[in-house]
Amino acid sequence: MLDLGHQIDQLRQVLPLVLPLVVLQLALLLLAIVDLFREERKVRFVGKPIWALIIVFVNIVGPLAYFFVGREDA
């Protein structure tokens, strides 16, 4: 029980530091997804569904690749 309490205390300490990381990751992912599904958006190399999978599942590099390589106007 003592160990669990210690772990919860540690989590409380770490959470405020990790939270911005989660927020930034989500912001990057949402920026990419919203941009991808704009009606006028044209993409290269693969279709929009594949780009959506790349953005969601390839951490950080996925959205980066979409913005710089995947967009028609990139």
Binding site: L21, L24, A27, L28, L31, I60, P63, L64, F67, F68
Partner: peptide, 12 residues
């Protein structure tokens, strides 16, 4: 959005 994307990646 290139500026924001690069800034977010660097921040991460």
């Amino acid at each position: 959005m290139r500026l924001y994307v690069v800034a977010i990646v660097f921040a991460l």
